[in-house]
């Protein structure tokens, strides 16, 4: 009985995504991108002990489960020969690895719920990693305001990758080229120290953006 209920629950859970017309190619790209974002967000939520970032990790993880289900369905429909089946099993293995990453990330953020004090250990530790997560305030009137990440080519000019933005009280995760920066935005970024130090003065109106580009 219990199993049947659970099965029904699962079916309902998947119903909304079963007939979505997303191609295997799009799904796999999305799963890869998400797996990278989710790992970054997990580390960031540890460094800043931030529950909202951790919630997004949980949300993305459940999205990944759904995408995994969908990519499995679509792959099965596509396998008509043994050769195709072999190739698709390889593809599913890649998708499943991305899903495993999101599972591990979700597990990591459980540390926030445990009754332990992270502060003396993790933020300090993760600040010594090769690439680190930082926060960056975008000051009103700085050259970043009103520009999209794509217009700025932020990552290619500074090596700084934006993983989340807090605007007023709302969070945006995994921004893309069309995402516009606004005054008083709080950015969570992943970067090398040097790249972050390059961008910081621009966000704080001490330097013009074109000085970096030139």
């Amino acid at each position: 009985m219990k199993n049947r209920e659970k099965k029904k629950e699962l079916e309902e859970d998947h119903a909304e995504i079963s007939y979505e017309d997303t191609s295997v190619r799009e799904l796999l790209t999305l799963m890869k991108d998400n797996s990278e974002l989710i790992a970054d967000l997990a580390y960031a939520s540890m460094v800043f002990e931030n529950e909202e970032l951790a919630d997004e990790v949980r949300h993305l993880e459940s999205q990944m489960d759904k995408m995994m289900y969908q990519i499995r369905l679509k792959s099965m429909l596509g396998a008509r020969t043994i050769n195709a089946a072999e190739q698709l099993s390889g593809l599913l293995q890649v998708a499943s690895a991305a899903e495993q990453i999101s599972d591990a990330a979700e597990d990591m953020v459980k540390l926030l719920d445990a009754q332990v004090d992270l502060k003396p250990i993790l933020p300090h530790l993760l600040k010594k990693a090769d690439e680190k997560v930082f926060t960056l305030n975008v000051e009103e009137g700085s050259d970043l305001v009103g520009k999209t990440l794509g217009e700025l080519r932020l990552e290619s000019v500074t090596g700084v990758r934006v993983i989340a933005i807090r605007h007023k009280k709302k969070w945006f995760y995994g921004p893309d080229g069309e995402t516009k920066l606004k005054g008083k935005d709080l950015l969570i970024v992943r970067a090398h120290e040097e790249g972050y130090e390059k961008l910081w003065p621009v966000a704080h109106k001490q330097k013009r953006w074109k000085e970096l580009v030139g």
Binding site: M46, A97, D103, A104, V116
Partner: peptide, 24 residues
Amino acid sequence: PDKSFILFKMADSIERFADAALDI
């Protein structure tokens, strides 16, 4: 003990990231 717990958990998650890379 808090510190042991945190380090254990972090190492576990990171090891799973590495496993995923291996699968790929």
